[in-house]
Simulated assay, not measured.
Amino acid sequence: MLLSYCTNVHPAEDLDGVLDQLARTAGPVREAAGLKTLGVGLWLPAALAHRLDRSPEDRERLRRVLAEHRLVVHTLNAFPYGGFHDEVVKHAVYSPTWAERARLNYVLACARVLADLLPEGVDGSISTLPLAWRAPWTPADDDEATRAFATLSRGLRDLADRTGRTVRVAVEPEPGCVLDTVDDVVAWLAARTATDLPAERRIDPELVGVCLDTCHLAVSFADPAAAVARITDAGLRVVKVQASAALHVDDPADPGAREAVARFAETRYLHQVRERGADGAVAGADDLPEALAGRLPAHGPWRVHFHVPLHHAPAAPLAATTDVLRAAVAAVAAAPHGDRAHLDVETYTWSVLPADVRPDGPAELVAGIAAELRWARDHLGGGAAEPSTTPLNARSVA
């Protein structure tokens, strides 16, 4: 699998800002991680994606900076449309939906840009949202989304025919969305891949597949190997794995555990929570403050959608779900086409970690991302070592 780190951790949304973050952060991360070259999973906000799509000169500026710092691009994150570092993001990250033309236009622009940036002989991948947040979502919306993905399939096929470069789009299930789980995304895509469907309603499984975010997978309490088997048994492929870990709370009724997890409640991002009951049933809350306020009974363990840096083990009584991450990567690697899946470290939450463990400036962020990449390189090929308990920064971890 090709390894990269996702640049949606950085706030820049214009070309100059992105070029600066590549020079000031991604380049130093490569050096700190001890890598000859570093994959960067670029996040291109919609306005920048459309600008780069229109401008060969701007793409050449980007290409020069990438080459200067020995960075390569084989995957893009096209889930957030823009404003991913606004003061409050929450549900805005799911807009526009796949029922709106702007979403299709954005992803197609990203595909054209990526095709022009790909190293020779390497296929590209783009992750995208699972249609929309679950409500409001109507049958008419679903029909529009179906047609949009069919149009996307034809656009990706035309791109491959014109350029000789294949770019695949990967739908990323997320708790609370229309396609909440792996089962949901498999059912939705598989129903639209039959060869006898009309072109305006058929999705090409060779070009549209699944993005397995291992934090989301853990939050849903899914079995990683079974989830990957469902994808491949349906004739679909795991195009991309977003290497990420969720927070695990074994006993959310314990006052100490509640106090510990409450430190991760913050105002920018949505942190969905799922609780598994004794019977295996999974209940949910749409955000961590709702769960803490009693939305969940706290009779069974919680998983919290908060991307924990991969190399870090939270202090007890909390834990991170890196066991799910390792199992998922192993299952994908053993699956058809698994060796061609892309592995993108996606810890976008560095800036909203509890204050006493948050990176204290750019140098500590570089060190943290580099540590994640070293951990991924060392432990996602079947290694059994646990995440390091080294503090995330120079200060002590409570």
Rank of each mutant, 00 (worst) to 15 (best):
S4G: 02
H10A: 09
H10S: 11
P11N: 09
A12P: 03
V18M: 04
Q21M: 04
L22P: 01
A23Q: 11
G27W: 04
G34S: 11
K36S: 12
A47D: 07
H50P: 07
R51Y: 04
D53E: 15
D53Y: 12
E57W: 05
D58W: 01
R63I: 02
R64N: 10
V65L: 03
E68F: 01
R70A: 11
A78I: 07
G82M: 04
D86M: 04
E87H: 13
H91S: 15
T97S: 13
R101A: 14
N105T: 12
V107W: 05
V107S: 08
L108G: 04
A109N: 12
A111G: 12
R112D: 08
R112L: 08
V113G: 09
A115P: 00
D116I: 12
L118K: 14
L118C: 10
L118H: 05
G121C: 03
D123I: 03
S125V: 13
S125F: 06
P130R: 15
L131Y: 06
R134H: 14
T138D: 10
P139Q: 03
A140Q: 11
E144C: 14
E144Q: 15
T146E: 05
R147D: 13
A148K: 04
F149E: 10
A150M: 06
G155R: 13
D161Y: 06
D161P: 00
R165A: 12
T166P: 07
V169C: 07
A170R: 10
P173L: 04
P173Y: 01
G176I: 10
V178H: 05
D183P: 05
A187I: 06
A187E: 15
L197D: 06
R201A: 14
R202K: 02
R202M: 05
I203S: 09
D204F: 06
E206M: 13
D213L: 14
T214D: 13
C215M: 13
D223K: 15
A227I: 02
V228Y: 06
I231A: 13
I231Y: 12
D233I: 11
L236F: 00
L236C: 05
K240Y: 14
V241K: 05
Q242L: 14
Q242P: 06
A243D: 09
S244F: 05
A245M: 08
D250N: 14
D250E: 15
P252G: 08
D254C: 12
G256Q: 11
E266G: 14
Y269N: 15
H271D: 07
Q272G: 13
V273M: 09
G280Q: 05
G280V: 11
G280A: 06
A283Y: 01
D287Q: 08
A293W: 01
H299G: 14
V304F: 05
V304Q: 06
V304A: 14
F306D: 11
A316G: 11
A316M: 08
P317L: 10
T321G: 04
R326S: 12
A327G: 07
A330F: 01
A330G: 08
A331S: 07
A331H: 02
A334F: 01
R340F: 03
R340N: 13
H342I: 12
Y348S: 15
T349F: 03
S351W: 03
V352M: 07
P362G: 07
P362V: 08
E364Q: 12
G368H: 03
A370F: 01
R374Q: 10
A376L: 09
L380N: 06
A385R: 08
P387A: 03
S388L: 00
T389L: 09
T390P: 04
P391R: 02
V397C: 02
